[in-house]
Amino acid sequence: MSDKEQKHTIVALVADKPGVLTRIASMFRRRGYNIASLAVGQSEQPGFSRMTFVVEGDEDTVNQVTKQLDKLIDVIRVSDITGRETVARELALIKVLATPATRGEIIQIVNLFRASIVDVGTQSMVVEITGEEDKINALYNLLEPCGVIEMLRTGVVAMVRGQANGQVTDDVGMAVIQ
C-alpha cells in the first residue's frame, strides 16, 4: 500500500434527513479516518444536501473513505475531486485585539487581503475573509501578533470547474493492475 499522505477533497451528495451527519461522522470515527474539515449545506436539489470533506491519508485510505461513505444508504453520490481543476473557498471570522496603536496596521492588512471588517469594538475588531485555505492561513499569521481572540472557520467548500463533476465512487480503486 502506498504511504504518501495527501489531503483529499471529497464531495458528497446526501439525503437531507435527520441523523445523516451522525451516520457519516460515526463511520469516520469507527474506521479511524480523520476529517480535516467538513462543510455542509443545501444543494441545488430539494431534499438533498452537499458536503465537502477534506480528508488526510494515503490513496488507499482515501479510497476506502469514499467507498465507505458511498455505502451509507443516505449518501447518494461521492466524488473525490482531488487533483481536478476546482474552485475551493472557505470563510473565516477572526476577532482580533485592536488598540488605537494597532488598529491602523490591522486595517492595512485586511485591505491587502481584500477581507473586510464586519464589527468594530473599543478593544477588538471582527475580520471576515473568504478564500482558499492558504489565504486564510496567511491572514491569520499576520494578525496573530496583534492578538487573535477568537477564530471561526466554516471548512472548505469545493466544486469542479466546468461541466465535469469529479471521479465518482464507482471508479475508485477499480483499476486493473497491468
Binding site: 500500500m1 476506502q64 467507498k67 455505502k71 477499480m174 486493473v176
Partner: peptide, 17 residues
C-alpha cells in the same frame, strides 16, 4: 458485491464488482 471490500486488505490485480 461490496466495492469497499475490493482492495481493502489485499490488492486485487483484477477487481470485479
Amino acid at each position: 458485491i461490496d466495492p469497499s471490500e475490493l482492495n481493502k486488505n489485499v490488492k486485487a490485480t483484477v477487481p470485479l464488482l
